[in-house]
């Protein structure tokens, strides 16, 4: 969940920064500071999007009832009967 929150929060923060800068309600120092922050956010958000492909996983219950992920061999699946 934390991964989602950070992307979602970062998007929201970026939008907030843009709005605040556009309303120019900040002093110069503050403007430059949030500009810097906004640019870093935009970069890291964009980088998140570029992230390598995630393999498809399968959630299974182990012998002790613990939940674990293993690779899902999802390609070349047979047709549904």
């Amino acid at each position: 969940m934390s991964k989602k929150s950070s992307f979602e929060n970062d998007m929201a923060r970026l939008e907030e920064i843009v709005a605040r800068l556009e309303r120019s309600e900040l002093g110069l120092d503050e403007s430059l500071k949030v500009f810097e922050e906004g640019m870093k956010l935009a970069e890291s958000l964009a980088k998140t999007l570029e992230k390598a492909e995630e393999r498809v996983k399968r959630l299974v219950k182990g012998v002790q009832g613990e939940l674990e992920l293993e690779d899902f061999e999802g390609d070349g699946l047979p047709e549904e009967s």
Partner: peptide
């Protein structure tokens, strides 16, 4: 895990964003 639905979901999800993790 062998149905048409899982294949459709994986295909469409990958085309939209490969970095979203899919857990079947």
């Amino acid at each position: 895990p062998t149905g048409a639905a899982v294949r459709d979901v994986i295909r469409v999800a990958r085309a939209r964003s490969a970095s979203v993790r899919l857990v079947v």
